[in-house]
Write a protein that binds this DNA or RNA. Sequence first.
DNA 1: CACCCTAGGTCTGGTTGACAGACTCAGCAA
DNA 2: TTGCTGAGTCTGTCAACCAGACCTAGGGTG
Lengths: 163, 163
Amino acid sequence: MTAPDRVLPAALAYSTENCTIGRAMAILGERWTFVVLREVFNGVRRFDDMARHAGIPRQVLSNRLAMLVEEGILRKEPYRPSGERVRHEYRLTRKGFDLYPVLLAVSRWGDTYLADPEGPPVELEHRGCGARVGLRMSCDAGHDIDELREVATRPGPGVRLLE
Amino acid sequence: MTAPDRVLPAALAYSTENCTIGRAMAILGERWTFVVLREVFNGVRRFDDMARHAGIPRQVLSNRLAMLVEEGILRKEPYRPSGERVRHEYRLTRKGFDLYPVLLAVSRWGDTYLADPEGPPVELEHRGCGARVGLRMSCDAGHDIDELREVATRPGPGVRLLE
DNA sequence: CACCCTAGGTCTGGTTGACAGACTCAGCAA
DNA sequence: TTGCTGAGTCTGTCAACCAGACCTAGGGTG
């Protein structure tokens, strides 16, 4: 029960309204967005497969896919299975692939804190080596970072002062 | 326009209903949850500071904080600034701190794809070294992983077969 | 004492989103 | 002609979001 420091860190002198987390979560922060993405990363690319496999309400899936296409995270591609008419599948764009670390981070956190007692239902392994896949913090200079204390916040090039 | 493989990967023979991503997103996947967490990670711990600083509707903030406390991600602690009455602040639990990689991943993705042209408003640097902080995929055996292709999905201990 | 200020909420009401279940529609197949 | 299948849309209900006003307890001020 000690008094906290009321001195706000430097970053907080700036508006967070333009902070990218808010924008990112406006896209990613809907109940099913990540579930859809997990399906696509797992190779499920078709509407009915997703709806059936992940148990997403069809209307919601429809909305989510349309939004993800509009945001440039998925693209809708026609293809023709031999002897059938043209169908469509959803595939990841580069922007979509780059969400993999987010998905992985969420997945590891969920496995740690939300899995049933017996353990997580699905695991990701390093192909060949067999060890579990995870994320490590590091800086662009290559140093590993183990402690949150080693991370500092600084204003970036797009900073905007509070009025 | 090639036909996709309709053979679902091994993981998909199992229900994803119990997959932890779904559960995690039921908690994290709401418009403001991460924005609240970002504030707390930045050292903003009090109701009014969050509401003012991040522009969150007070009712929503109230709900979000209550939910995060109930989920064991935040805890509410009383403290008394000298000469004032008792107040409350929200602090991260261990479970909450472990969300940092998720926050960092979202933040880096947002900085890359959603920032204003001039760049992200805030950056995270390695204290001392000054380089930007990011995440690297690696396996528990210590190998770096650069390609998504190196990651394979396997059933985990808590797997549950589809009926 | 009466009044004001502040932190930390609640209350109200309109708008949007989630969701289940039924319906549609095009093209192939029998 | 009828049926099947993939990929949706339509309808109606219920919950969540959100802005803006309101409330309340404790301490300070005149």
